[in-house]
Design a protein around this nucleic acid. Structure first.
Length: 596
DNA sequence: CTAGGGTTAG
């Protein structure tokens, strides 16, 4: 009766039976202790019984040690372990101790127990391999694995998974094929899940082969595996293959639908996503938020909002999808309105919500709002996400408080590339060129790989200080040292740098050499350089390109007319019309060498 | 009575 209740998880019933028992033997005490440990790891209640037992055997000890070890209470586990004889504790109880040691990071202790064992089984070895993998000590894991006297599917899976999670995926795949070639041990669904997961995040071609393996092993009816395959294809950009898998699956669940839905959205097939969404049989929050976020992130905010209104239980993620949509559309005011509505509905903002509204405050350059959100962050987040801290850095910088930005930056224990970029950009926007370049040097020394955003900050700094040679150097090193193709913004910066220094010819040549289409910023930089150096001819060319891109661009007209005025020419309507005409005539003199 | 894992949304 007691064990029947215990096995079904009815602990209080089991305890009732136990308490009412007229005669208890060791087995009934042990059963009750085991029940407490297996159901919710209630170590204290188990230990209380353990202490009250009139006599104990090795099973009592083993059960209690398992409880302590799984709860990470290794001191207590050790105490009982030392009371057991060699014969009773090996290998099972010792294995438990090994796992417990790894759990609390006591690698040396685990090794000592393992080395001291007289009888090791395959579990002892596999536990050691797993412990080393999870502690990042891959070499030791591999060495132990090679020394194993026998291996089973768990041993192989442990190391394969360990290698893949460690990032040594090539080695992981080699081990998988070795397993299949050298042994008759068959992979199971656990092995395959780990591999598919890795393939999905790495966009590895092996995913397709693993799919074949899943089918040939007869696992295609496993919904978990099927969903992983859908995910793998979606992440690799093969939505059609994902769709085929989806259609083939007999046991679809809501995750299968959601995964394919997300796949369509990530591969920008919004219409197909919409069609699929309408057919999802039992839509859950994820189905709704996936669709809402998909629309919102693709600038279709109004549709996203109307879907949001249809949603019954709106969670924080749904709200955040809309709010971040406003932020990326530059509609910061509405982002705030919605943020307040969210608070009124008593939905707690999460870290993405918070970093979005910090960005909104930055976009509005509204220090007051920014500080309020900052206070909220301090109040609600014990350890604010890096994304929040990074956006706070940008926010303070954009609101003019460069030293508050710096204070936040220095408080970040492990800054990432985004943190570095935010701070470099902040310095550079504020004209603190030395600091910006110093930070750039510092991050390179620390081994952080700069990206295109970093270089934009660096080039902006150079432009600010008129550092022509340094600017040229960094611009060149982008491609030669870091294999980053400069984008239009980088070119605009370089045109600015060259233009300010009066090297107009070089600036024009640079535009001519651009592999991408020059955008407004590039021509704007050229125009302002032409104005500074009073090159009316070049100014006209630049202005014309600006007006091609943006026919109502007032700046272009204003700059041109000022230059005419300075040159003691009249910039009347007629002159503007002339420019217009020239544009329509399609051939501006000199235009041919600028056209890309 | 011990060892390997788990898919989707911001």
């Amino acid at each position: 009766m007691l064990t029947a209740y215990a096995e079904n998880g009815h602990i209080s019933k089991a305890r009732q039976v136990f308490d009412e028992m007229p005669h208890r033997n060791i087995a009934s005490w042990n059963a009750m202790i085991t029940a407490y440990i297996r159901n919710g790891l209630r170590v204290n209640e188990a230990f209380e019984l353990f202490c009250r037992m009139p006599e104990r055997n090795s099973i009592s000890h083993a059960a209690m040690i398992t409880g302590f070890a799984q709860a990470g209470m290794m001191g207590e586990a050790w105490g009982l372990f030392s009371e057991m004889s060699e014969a009773d504790r090996e290998p099972v109880v010792a294995n438990t101790i090994i796992v417990g040691c790894f759990k609390i990071g006591e690698l040396e202790e685990a090794k000592r127990v393992f080395d001291g064992m007289r009888r090791r089984d395959v579990v002892s070895w596999s536990s050691m391999v797993d412990g080393y993998c999870k502690s990042g000590r891959i070499d030791e894991a591999k060495e132990l694995f090679e020394r194993m006297p026998e291996r089973n599917v768990v041993s192989w899976t442990t190391l394969i998974n360990g290698l893949l999670k460690f990032g040594a995926w090539a080695e992981g795949f080699v081990l998988l094929s070795r397993m299949r070639k050298e042994t008759s041990i068959e992979v199971n669904s656990i092995t395959l899940t780990a591999i598919l997961d890795t393939c999905a995040s790495l966009n590895r071609g092996e995913g397709i082969q693993v799919h074949g393996l899943v089918v040939s092993m007869g696992f295609e009816s496993d919904a978990f595996l099927g969903n992983s395959i859908i995910n793998m294809y979606c992440r690799a950009g093969c939505v059609n293959s994902a769709r085929r898998m989806f259609d083939m699956m007999i046991k679809k669940n809501v995750v299968s639908w959601n995964t394919l839905l997300a796949g369509y959205i990530q591969n920008s097939s919004l219409e197909k996503a919409y069609a699929l969404f309408s057919r999802v049989p039992h839509k859950d929050v994820v189905s709704w938020t996936t669709m809402i976020a998909g629309l919102s992130n693709n600038g279709r905010l109004e549709e996203a909002i109307s879907l949001f209104r249809e949603m019954e239980q709106k969670d924080d993620i749904a709200w955040t999808a809309i709010i971040s949509g406003f932020v990326s559309n530059g509609d910061y005011e509405r982002a705030f309105t919605w943020f307040i509505d969210m608070a009124c509905e008593a939905i707690k903002p999460n870290s993405v919500t918070l970093s979005s509204v910090v960005c909104a405050a930055a976009g509005l350059a509204n220090l007051n709002q920014g500080e309020q959100i900052h206070a909220l962050v301090v109040k609600t987040e014990k350890e604010p996400d890096l994304s929040i801290l990074n956006s706070l850095v940008s926010m303070y910088a954009k609101c003019g408080n460069i030293w508050d930005a710096y204070r936040i930056f220095t408080s970040i224990i492990e800054p990432n590339i985004v943190s570095m970029n935010s701070m470099i950009t902040a310095f550079s926007q504020h004209g603190h060129v030395e600091e910006a370049l110093e930070l750039f040097r510092h991050m390179q020394e620390k081994g952080h790989e700069p990206n295109q955003v970093t270089f934009l900050g660096v080039l902006t700094a150079c432009a600010h200080a008129g550092l022509v040679e340094e600017g040229k150097y960094h611009f060149a090193s982008m491609k030669s040292s870091y294999f980053i193709e400069p984008g239009p913004d980088h070119y605009a910066c370089m045109v600015d740098i060259l233009g300010r220094a009066g090297q107009l010819k070089d600036a024009v040549d640079l535009i001519h050499s651009m592999p991408c289409e020059p955008h407004l910023g590039v021509w704007g930089a050229l125009l302002s350089a032409s104005r500074t150096h009073k090159d009316l001819y070049l100014a006209k060319v630049a202005a014309q390109h600006i007006l091609d891109l943006e026919p109502n661009n007032a700046t272009a007209y204003v700059v041109l007319s000022n230059m005419y005025a300075d040159a003691k020419l009249t910039c009347n309507e007629e002159e503007v019309i002339t420019v217009e005409r020239a544009k329509r005539a399609a051939k501006i003199p000199g235009c041919s060498w600028i056209v890309v």
